[in-house]
Design a protein around this nucleic acid. Structure first.
Lengths: 221, 221
DNA sequence: GTCTATATTGAGATAGAC
DNA sequence: GTCTATCTCAATATAGAC
């Protein structure tokens, strides 16, 4: 046998766990090697550099996001439902891949500093574009307010959702779907107890009914 | 004269600018010294270490936040108005101290890694507590929804606001007050074009009228 | 208070034997 | 594919003269 099967994956998952817990910088290649059970030099048989490990972790994660977001868009739903499903998908991904999520959240600075990671940043920009597309769709079809620039909403929402996914491991209190419902309801319906009057197209018939299972639709039942 | 007046401050502001632009780690003490116009060894006459500089920058920033948030609370307003004013204050602080804001946003990982910064983290926790207090006040007095855990809202909002303040220097498009109005309106009224029915205390008279100048109040005028 | 010079350390990476 | 041994480099910090 010329290799232990899955040694590469073992390095990736071990490194991801350590990067997430202690940060990329303060995780040394020696520590990764120790945890895997080899010596540091041996890592370089599998990867060209420490940053190559980081890159592979993050590109895999971002590719997974793109695919899953793409599946949501392919359903061709209204903007409100799409937004809800993208929130839900994001929380699911945060739960499925907590380490990659944490790395992506915590290490933006590290990534920004190194030209090496421009591919990662490009993939991240693509993902951001998906959010923006949904928001603009909603404004265009009248289901979202047009008195607030999509840019403002777009700047607020995706980061907030991913940050909410922080520590959303198997442990923490809320299960994924109700949390997605709650977050979407905050962003769409607001946190105020009294529905406020609206500028713009508030008189129009909403293009999309509240999605099934949302807090708002439960309330009206 | 035993010192150039303000040499300490010059080091602090210079370092802050560089930390914000390139990150703490990739800013070396030599570069800071160069930019200030001295040699690296001389910095150690003014500060014990590089991290001491970081600490002083951040503690000053967090102390400023605490004071300004405290002024908002001292006005004894309703929860919705307080929330709006805390959002506004945060955006103003982000504009007044963009470097400290960026450092605080970007370098959480750096701070978490080092026990030295536990004071900074404690101060940050205090600030978080102020947000939570306002949210709980609003839920208690019926102006905020009680069908969504305050913890969820609290996890969503402060970070989103500070992230919105990113790059909110003199340049970027929106002036501070309208932006604060828009953000608060998203969080309280929602982004949906159609006010949704509400669970919980939605039938009660709101404890607080919409604040003057908010999008919601303009809409009803 | 600033300079010159240097100590110290830590980490990523490499070469070549096995 | 892994190990041993080591290189190289960068960066914080220090000591002591001026």
């Amino acid at each position: 046998m010329t290799e232990s099967v899955g040694r590469r994956e073992l390095i990736l998952t071990t490194a991801a766990e350590m990067f997430a817990r202690k940060g990329i910088r303060s995780t040394t290649v020696r520590e990764i090697a120790d945890a895997v059970g080899v010596l540091s030099g041996s890592l370089y048989h599998h990867f060209d550099s420490k940053d190559a490990i980081v890159q592979e972790i993050l590109m895999g994660f971002l590719e997974a996001i793109r695919i899953r977001y793409g599946e949501v868009l392919a359903r061709g739903q209204g903007a409100a439902k799409s937004l809800h499903d993208i929130v839900l998908t994001s929380l699911q991904l945060a739960r499925e891949q907590p380490d990659a999520t944490a790395i992506y959240q915590n290490e933006l600075q590290y990534l920004r500093e190194r030209p090496r990671f421009k591919d990662v940043q490009a993939a991240a920009a693509d993902v951001q574009g998906i959010w923006l597309g949904v928001i603009e769709q909603g404004v265009a079809d009248g289901s979202f307010r047009d008195d607030i620039a999509p840019r403002i909403f777009h700047r607020l929402v995706p980061d907030a959702v991913w940050l909410s996914g922080r520590g959303h491991r198997a442990d923490g209190g809320y299960s994924t779907e109700p949390l997605a419902d709650a977050i979407t309801s905050i962003f769409l319906d607001g946190f105020s107890a009294h529905p406020a009057p609206r500028k713009g197209r508030s008189g129009q018939v909403p293009a999309t009914a509240p999605w099934p299972g949302s807090l708002a639709s439960e309330a009206s039942a």
